[in-house]
Design a protein around this nucleic acid. Sequence first.
RNA 1: GUGGGUGUAGCUCAGUUGGUUAGAGCACCAGGUUGUGGCCCUGGGGGCCGUGGGUUCAAGUCCCAUCACUCACCCCA
Length: 421
Amino acid sequence: MSQKIRAIKGMEDLFEEQSVKIWQRVESEARCLFEAAGFQEIRTPIVEETALFERGVGETTEIVEKEMYTFLDRNDKSLSLRPEGTASVVRAFIEHFTDHQVQEGRFYYIGPMFRYENPQKGRYRQFHQIGLECFGQDHPGLDAEMIFLLDQFLRCLNVHDFELKINSLGSSECRQAYLAALKEYFSEHRFQLGEEDQRRLERNPLRILDSKDPTSQTVIEGAPHLRDFLSEETQTHFLAVQEFLKNLGVPFTVDSRMVRGLDYYEKTVFEFVSTELGAQNSIAGGGRYNRLVKSLGGPVVPAVGFALGMERLTSLLSAEKLGLKNLPKVFFAALDEDSEKYFASKLPEIRQLNAMTMVDWGSTSLKSKMKRAARWGAQWVLLSGESEREKSVVVVRDMESSSQEEVPAHDMIDFLQKKFS
RNA sequence: GUGGGUGUAGCUCAGUUGGUUAGAGCACCAGGUUGUGGCCCUGGGGGCCGUGGGUUCAAGUCCCAUCACUCACCCCA
């Protein structure tokens, strides 16, 4: 019993017909929409050198510090399962695209990510993201376009109960100045902060801002605001983003305390938060990262991107809301060897039907075949046995109405084709 | 890494202050109906009560440990 091998904690099998259909729909919708917006799919390896994530995601982030699946390969090289998608795409971009005359590109990816965290509702050790990365331009219109795309994507899947929060983190220079001011402020009030927040003061004071610790709240409220440190350039950039969003009709709120967990973001950051999920309610997030390409060894190429959590998105969806329809199910029950051979000879045509078809092999009783058909959810059962072979007919049974009729065997495919066209 | 909740049949769960052989519903199989599913009736198979230890004449029930699942903190998709 306890010896049974089970899936690893936080990693799930996805097999239920309905949910698999939902995933397929989300993925095809994403491909369609994003390709229409000029993005090409990129599939990068799931394993990379550990250093890529350390340098890309940031050494002081939670992700790199304690959430990576890291191991040595047989040559003692340190490798890691990707905890997010951007670093890999940037690496690939540098490797394949930066010797072009024009250093730009638009990519999307769909695939699994891995983080060693304790699972809970909406959080898994293997989870799946759809991500977009756009290289080459530092323009507020592009930031807005990315957000617009994401908004459009959610709406075309009939998701409406979410909020969009945006903020500007400033350029690296503004952030430096702000960080210094923040550190000073929090140091002065350090003993009014919660325990965890006091520790953050050393490592990443930005994170204190979205702390939920009630003891820290009054200090946080009095903290200096990032917006007061924005340079004129980032200020106007951010205002322009908002302007574009308004013109595009994308509703948003500015959340000046929002910071994101990855080090590479600067300027515009954004997050789509569901109003109907549990504690893990962020369905997508992203922002601009103008320095990352350079810091991973490429040229100076500005970029902006986002990632969306498949598990969180699909938990908001249902087959009904998406209007997913199942193909009709047709069950072929052969009662003797002769009928079995007959159905076998028709397989190529059977598989051409616009229906889900299943041939039941083996000579069990008709009763048990009917049971299997019903359990599978067949709408139609095609029956053939000795007497049908003699008369060269098949029996077509409508499982819902329990009525059946004999159809000449040579008309069988035509008959079915008409039913399912 | 930290805290709470839950582990009894394939699934959902009962199981009294510790007391004889551990139960129900659903699902499954067979028969009623020799070639017809669902509905009905009859019967049947299935359990180391998560695992290990302890207390006791006696443990599914009490105690300790451990593992798993789950929710939450933290963090993020």
